[in-house]
């Protein structure tokens, strides 16, 4: 499928290596971040090979800003620019569309940013339950050691202030902001569902960059195991959007999906404590506890040890200096 898409490549010149740094994936998705997923999906649908890196050079990227797209000397830090680059230099999925359809793509992109993104940010970062139980642990695990302590908090604050500035304000209670953000997002989902109808993709049977974009917005919400899932329930209730996401996952990311299913089937056994160092920690804990108890008993005089220097002459130290020196 992917190979057949390759035929409308714009420029079949020397293919340079393209590096792509992004957030790692989970729950059957190649990446959990909207922007990273957008580029990955576009590349996958267009049959472009990206060298995907996760957690590379973390010390150069201390704010954990992803995605980073590198092709030769170009370094692009936004999904729009990266896709623009892919369209110009590799394969353009929108080549066969009319001008009006291309305008529609731009309009839907604006719709998602305007109506849906605040809702998604709210679910991910602002909702306290989701943040404590899912988002923070997940990002802390995904990040390298010193970053995992402060980057999740940074991302949360950025998302919070963004939602507040765009949708809230001094005149609104937090509760009102929440309900407004969710009702906007739900309305947006309904509109998308009506637009998609019974089609396979948004412009008929062939996927375009709009499908990659909308998939990247919907899939993380659909697949993440969210504890507080008002918006997720709404998305799951809109049948055709769910089928749309599953269709793209099955067609373009079958491996990821299989991996996640394999994981989830074996998960219930070690679900509660999936710490890889569980055994080591238990041993360490026992040793520390025993040492503490023993030293307490010893120091407080509960136990006494008498040392008698009766036959200390039994130890013999035997060095052979001459040969060591050579």
């Amino acid at each position: 499928m992917a190979a057949s898409m390759d035929s409308n490549g714009v420029n079949d010149g020397p293919r340079k290596a393209m590096d792509f740094d992004c957030w790692k994936g989970d729950w059957g998705l190649p990446s959990v971040d909207v922007k990273c997923l957008n580029v990955l999906t576009y590349a996958q649908i267009a049959g472009i090979n990206l060298k995907v890196h996760k957690n590379r050079f973390w010390w150069r990227n201390l704010t954990a800003h992803f995605p980073i797209f590198q092709a030769a000397e170009d370094v692009l830090r936004s999904d729009t620019e990266a896709i623009q680059y892919l369209k110009e230099n590799q394969a353009n999925l929108d080549g066969d569309l009319t001008d009006q359809q291309r305008a529609d793509i731009l309009a839907f992109k604006a719709l998602m940013e305007e109506k849906y993104l605040p809702g998604l940010l709210h679910v991910w970062w602002v909702d306290a339950k989701n943040f404590v139980e899912l988002t923070r642990p997940w990002y802390a695990k995904a990040l390298h050691f010193p970053l995992n302590y402060f980057v999740p908090g940074q991302l949360k604050r950025a998302a919070e202030s963004r939602v507040d500035i765009i949708r809230g304000g001094d005149h609104m209670e937090p509760q009102e902001v929440t309900s407004r953000v969710y009702s906007d997002a739900k309305e947006c989902l309904n509109l998308l569902s009506e637009r998609l109808g019974d089609e396979d993709f948004f412009f008929g049977p062939v996927p375009t960059s709009l499908d990659a974009l909308i998939f990247s917005y919907l899939a993380p919400l659909l697949r993440a195991p969210l504890p507080s899932n008002q918006l997720q329930t709404h998305l799951k209730a809109t049948d055709n959007l769910c089928r749309f996401c599953t269709r793209i996952l099955l067609r373009y990311f079958p491996d990821e999906l299989q991996d996640s299913e394999a994981n989830s089937s074996k998960k219930p056994t070690d679900d509660l404590f999936d710490d890889p160092h569980k055994r080591r920690n238990q041993v360490l804990f026992a040793v520390v506890a025993l040492t503490a108890m023993a030293s307490y008993a010893f120091l407080s005089g509960l136990v006494r040890v008498q040392i008698k220097d009766s036959d200390s002459s039994g130890i013999e130290l035997d060095y052979d200096d001459g040969e060591e020196g050579q």
Partner: peptide, 18 residues
């Protein structure tokens, strides 16, 4: 129609957003 309303909203967002 539903699909037209979706487009209407999308273009309104585009106008506002840009």
């Amino acid at each position: 129609s539903g699909s037209q309303r979706a487009l209407l909203k999308a273009y309104m967002s585009l106008t506002v957003n840009r």
